[in-house]
């Protein structure tokens, strides 16, 4: 593990840390990620590939926020087309619940998001991530 240089508040403001989970069967991941699991062109967005979006524990998203990320997202397959039939519906429900829990804890629920993009929708996926990063800018590092 290379040591990470401390990031200045200015850097955090420009490119807030985001942790995302990407389903293996959703957006094609060839050439999408660089060696340290960040999105190519967006080094502040870490993406963890998972076997199905339904694998993600809501607690993991909370952990990401608690550890200093400005936002956390899950990307599954298009609704209705989950390889495992239900994973993305289940995950969407769990995120709804998590948002309620977050707002009870006075955390902005908009800091977690669910996306649904298929194999060929890389551009749409990247655009959605960029928009999400814009939305959560300035939320990181505090709790």
């Amino acid at each position: 593990m290379a040591t990470v240089p401390d990031r200045t508040p200015q850097a955090e403001e420009a490119a807030p840390r985001v942790v995302g989970f990407l389903c293996d069967w959703a957006v094609r991941s060839e050439g999408l990620l660089s060696a340290d699991d960040t999105l190519v062109g967006m080094p502040h967005v870490t993406v963890i590939r998972v076997p199905c979006s339904g694998f993600v524990k809501p607690g993991w998203l909370e952990l990401a926020l608690r550890s200093g990320a400005a936002g956390a997202f899950v990307c599954g397959c298009p609704m209705g087309d989950c390889l495992n039939r239900e994973g993305n519906w289940i995950m969407e429900d769990r995120i709804d619940q998590l948002r309620k829990r977050l707002s009870r804890q006075k955390v902005d629920p908009e800091r977690v998001a669910f996306f649904a993009f298929g194999l060929h929708e890389r551009e749409d996926f990247l655009r959605a991530v960029a928009e999400f990063v814009d939305r959560v800018r300035g939320s990181g590092g505090k709790r």
């Binding site: 990031r7 870490t46 694998f55 524990k57 607690g59 993991w60 550890s67 200093g68 590092g141």
Partner: peptide, 29 residues
């Protein structure tokens, strides 16, 4: 994802490893 009690694991993608990767990504501030 359904289990809130850490009672289920995929043998080659353990909960603690995922947590580590999350924290590395979020760079615990």
């Amino acid at each position: 994802g359904a289990c809130p009690f850490e009672a289920l694991e995929l043998p080659r993608m353990l909960d603690k490893d995922v947590q580590q990767r999350i924290q590395r990504g979020a760079r615990a501030a």
